[in-house]
Design a protein around this nucleic acid. Structure first.
Length: 531
RNA sequence: GCGGGCGUAGCUCAGUGGUAGAGCAUCUGCCUUCCAAGCAGAAUGUCAGGGGUUCAAAUCCCCUCGCCCGCUCCA
């Protein structure tokens, strides 16, 4: 099936969710109590899938950064981990801008369904008159509504002047909202409570209010100075952290895509500010060179775990889309069934300048400059005087749960021509079940051979994922079960195995069987898993 | 937050006022020399939750919760 856009018809999200429940990938949180909006739990297979994806990130980012590649400056990439708390000092979130951004009162228009920041809404009132109970015309500056509303107001009152909506007492019945026809369609301002709060301390005291982190990144920035003061790291280097974050999404939606509790995998990679670069460094070690390096490598990485193909794109942000502190940002986006033909964000790679360190330096009153002893004036003894600066930062920030959801959507395959029409095409590296061993029949000495091979595989690979064995039922049914769980390889012991010490290896994606020596199975699986 | 749809077995769903159902999956046998096969049997439900109407509610009414879709939001 091909849709009007020329794309294959999106996979059925209902079918994917149904399989996720049926096979124990994802359950609704607190389901027996009716569920809780915006929270999802993982079952055994989902937990393993998620662990495998997190572990792949950890191995490729922290243990062997960027697969051992050299950065644009020609040096090995250095990244160290931290593990910081979900609850930080409340001022962390004032410095980061989250408190302000998360606490704006908003007004909604019932007629146009527009939503505006209360403090951004202006109204036109008569120039030399009290507005009394006359209608007032609301607009948001720099939008087309401003000119239009001015015209309407002048038609009604003659000369008008703008005042803040918030300066009027009880205006709600007579406000004509931007782009609205009727008065009285604006709601009273409401707070959008986007950060979860909590109160540390055994005695509840609102003055001690703290927040559950809305991102793991700030924990990294807050400890960055400690990391470079107490470890032998030198800029450029990165700090990585994976962990849980919380956001009060306005509308939890689209299965696990927009959850209120979710896990992030973030890198803050600190680089030399451009003004301190010398000679060739101006091209090879420029922040933008690092930005491109990470952007392109992160894209390759997502492909390597099984998201290749046309459903994955790298999208550079347009200038007007950039946050005010960023000069370059791109998103790695996946075409989810529920976003198709559009895309949903998996990871953002942003060049953030020194915005975050500047903010924390200011709010904490603690100097966060890095002392770079490899730069500055050359002293008589040949060493350098050293310079101090706030490093610039490249931030590749990925959503782990979104990654898992993308893996589930990408893996889900429907093929009515197969005996097992639904199957999960996981890359072996992330597959929760790595291999299965079956005796063709539950008799004639076959189970004994299968048990032995299963034990060998489990000894070698069970720390990476499940190794299954099952002797019951028809062989087709057992293959089909493994297909649904996404197990890439099934090894079957048959009568020939007893004579020739060989088994068949069935490939999940093609159903093709090849015969191989029992002795070679462990090596074969190891090679496929890259283990 | 607004509008629409939905909620019955593990899954997919039927059941519109009168005994809680089907298919598939699951489990136990038998059978079986490679793809959800066959035969026999078994287990499985707060009908999302609460309240109301009624002799009687899965069914009608109200409230709540959750999921899906469209707006909105996504710092």
């Amino acid at each position: 099936m091909v849709s009007a856009s020329g794309l294959p018809a999106p996979k059925s999200m209902d079918a994917i969710m149904s399989l996720c429940k049926r096979r124990g990938f994802v359950y609704q949180a607190s389901e027996i109590y009716g569920g809780i909006n915006g929270f999802w739990d993982y079952g055994p297979l989902g937990t393993l899938l998620k662990r495998n994806l997190r572990e792949a990130w950890w191995q490729d980012v922290v243990m062997v950064p960027c697969w051992g590649r050299r950065g644009p400056d020609g040096e090995t990439v250095s990244i160290v981990p931290v593990d910081t708390r979900i609850i930080q000092h409340p001022k962390v979130w004032e410095a980061s801008g989250h408190v302000a951004g998360f606490n704006d009162p908003m007004v909604d228009c019932r007629e146009t369904r527009g939503r505006y920041r209360y403090d951004h809404v202006q109204v036109f009132v008569p120039q030399n008159d009290q507005p009394g109970d006359k209608p007032v015309f609301a607009y948001v500056g720099d939008q087309p509504s401003e000119a239009k509303q001015r015209k309407r107001a002048e038609k009604t009152f003659g000369a008008v002047k703008p005042v803040a909506l918030s300066s009027l007492a009880q205006p709600w019945a007579r406000v004509i909202a931007p782009d609205a026809e009727q008065p009285g369609t604006l709601t009273e301002p409401r707070m959008f409570n986007l950060m979860f709060d909590t109160v540390p301390g055994a005695i509840r005291d609102e003055a001690n209010k703290a927040y559950l982190r809305p991102e793991t990144a700030q924990g990294i920035f807050v400890q960055a100075k400690n990391v470079w003061d107490t470890n032998r790291v030198r800029v450029p280097f990165g700090i990585a952290q994976a962990g849980t974050s919380f956001r009060n999404e306005v509308t939890p939606r689209n299965f696990t895509f927009r959850s209120r509790e979710f896990e992030q995998m973030e890198i803050e990679f600190f680089v030399v500010p451009p003004e301190f670069l010398e000679g060739d460094e101006k091209t090879t070690a420029d922040p933008l060179a690092w930005y491109k390096f990470f952007r392109d490598w992160r894209m390759e990485w997502w492909k390597s775990v099984g998201l290749g193909g046309e459903n994955l794109i790298l999208r550079d942000h347009a200038t007007d889309e950039l946050a005010h502190y960023s000069t370059a940002t791109s998103d790695i986006e996946y075409r989810f069934p529920f976003t198709s033909p559009g895309f949903g964000e998996l990871e953002g790679i942003a060049y953030r300048g020194n915005y975050d360190l500047t903010q924390h330096q200011k709010h904490s009153g603690t100097k966060l400059e890095y002392r770079d002893t490899g730069r500055g004036e050359v002293l008589p003894n040949g060493s350098r005087r050293g310079v101090s600066y706030l490093p610039h930062v490249i931030e590749p920030s990925a959503g782990l749960d979104r990654g898992v959801l993308a893996l589930l959507c990408e893996a889900y395959t429907k093929d009515e021509s197969r005996p097992s029409p639904e199957f999960m095409k996981f890359h072996p590296r992330v597959a929760p079940i790595k291999a299965a061993v079956f005796p063709l029949m539950d008799k004639d000495g076959l189970p004994e051979v299968a048990t032995k091979l299963h034990a060998e595989l489990a000894k070698r690979f069970a720390r990476l994922g499940m190794i299954e064995t099952d002797a019951k039922g028809s062989i087709g049914k057992r293959y089909a079960r493994m297909d649904e769980a996404g197990c890439p390889f099934c090894f079957t012991v048959d009568a020939e195995s007893l004579k020739g010490q060989s088994v068949t290896c069935r490939d999940r994606d093609t159903g093709v069987q090849t015969r191989m020596a029992i002795d070679s199975v462990v090596g074969f699986v190891g090679e496929k898993l890259g283990a």
